[in-house]
Amino acid sequence: MSTVNPTEAQQPPRTLKISILRHNPQDPASVPHMQTFTLEEAPAMTLFVALNDLREHQDPSLQFDFVCRAGICGSCAMVINGRPGLACRTLTHTLAPEITLAPLPFFELIGDLSVNTGKWMRSMSERLQTWIHSTDSVDIKRLEARMEPELAEAIYELERCIECGCCVAACGTAQMREDFVGAVGMNRIARFRLDPRDQRSDEAFYDLIGDDDGIFGCMSLLGCQDVCPKNLPLQSQIAFLRRKMVKVGLS
């Protein structure tokens, strides 16, 4: 059983110095600059708590995005001390007292720490047609089509992606090639390829990702794998897709 209560403070509070990359593209006078705030740390404080505290008490114009604040919606991805991660589930006590926050690179900046991942993800989904393609008509009054339990689990394993954008922000390829679909896109394709309800062939998937903006653009730098907050098996899935797509290409 638990002997240490995580909700109890064990030490005198630290003073955090939080440096934030500020910029409001809506304001023509705004230039990107770092701004440093100081804040007293509280027990079990996350960056969600810290940033809201700053907005409410120090600078009401500070922009950032949180929705679920529980690590499941993917809204709050930002660059924390140089690495993309989910701010809501980053406990400040796991960081040094000097914290640097910046918006995710690659995505359109809305302001300060807020970026338009949603817009990019939607266009990725449209481009990769990330939905079940089936010509079967299903009678929903009748028993559903059966599926092996392990297969359902395997699909769910890939379905866990929350489209936070960390993988794209950590991707060296995406930094250089803005049309690259990123690990998030390829993982989506891998998910539908695995799903027997999706009747698309490998040739059809090749049409979606068989180029240098897709699977063949990936240089296997694995930033995606190493920052993914959901620990998705991105490396394996991209490798798997590459083998399948090359097979199509060589046939």
């Binding site: 939905w131 079940i132 089936s134 079967d136 299903v138 929903i140 559903e144 089509a145 059966r146 599926m147 092996e148 339990p149 359902a152 689990e153 699909i155 769910y156 379905e159 539908f192 799903d195 309800r197 999706d198």
Partner: peptide, 8 residues
């Protein structure tokens, strides 16, 4: 039918 991988 829309792809939710319900546990089986």
């Amino acid at each position: 039918a829309w792809g939710v991988p319900w546990s089986r």
